[in-house]
């Protein structure tokens, strides 16, 4: 598993629940190092061990933690870079949805060895979509749901998301677009804020 993913899980747990909780989770997961390095590769077993330990220590279902990670990636102030990189995907939420197919390629442009699961968007009608996540780790769709919910908010769109099922290696999310201009949303300025 790419260290960037493990590092994100660690940052989420630390920023949301505090350093002490992270230490407890890391100890419970049996990590023999202080933290993940974003630029190293780790055994996927470790990622799962951390998620299991987090569920246990925090007393929350694994799915909820995964969805919270997705929300955190877009909305937490420490993760502004990720929000921005995602918003490059499209000028509005629908354009962003259309860009999901190329998300793994975009991720690879940034980090050549970051392998995200293949995403496939199907338009049922102009306001309903089905998103299929192929060959992802168990529950990856929950992370995506968190990301989509937070980004919809960011774009000012109103969406209903539902985790449909996991069949074989494919997880499915249904997306209902209730309104594209529900609120102002946050402006996306192409210029980068420095500092």
């Amino acid at each position: 598993m790419h260290g960037m993913i493990n590092r994100s899980v660690q940052c989420f747990l630390t920023d949301t629940y505090g350093r002490e909780k992270w230490d407890a989770i890391a100890a419970s997961a049996g990590l023999d190092f202080a933290g993940f390095e974003p630029m190293l590769e780790y055994d996927p077993i470790l990622t799962e061990a951390v998620l299991q330990a987090a569920a246990q220590v925090l007393g929350k279902p694994r799915q909820m933690i995964l969805e919270d990670i997705g929300t955190y990636l877009v909305s937490h102030e420490n993760m502004q870079m990720i929000r921005r990189l995602l918003r490059f995907g499209g000028a509005n939420f629908v354009a962003f949805l259309y860009s999901l197919d190329e998300l793994p390629d975009r991720a690879r442009l940034a980090l050549p060895d970051l392998d995200l699961p293949a995403l496939e968007l199907e338009e049922t009608d102009t306001a309903s979509f089905t998103l299929r996540v192929r060959n992802g780790p168990d529950g990856f769709a929950y992370v995506l749901m968190g990301v989509l919910r937070a980004l919809a908010d960011d774009y000012g769109a109103l969406v209903l998301l539902e985790f449909d099922e996991r069949r074989g290696d494919t997880e499915t999310i249904s997306i209902q677009l209730a309104e594209t201009a529900f609120s102002e949303g946050r402006r996306f300025d192409l210029r980068r804020r420095t500092g």
């Binding site: 630029m39 990189l85 980090l111």
Partner: peptide
């Protein structure tokens, strides 16, 4: 816009 994306992605990776 893709180029700007790359520049930012590059900066983010450099930061890491």
């Amino acid at each position: 816009v893709e180029m700007l994306y790359l520049v930012e992605a590059n900066a983010a990776v450099q930061g890491e």
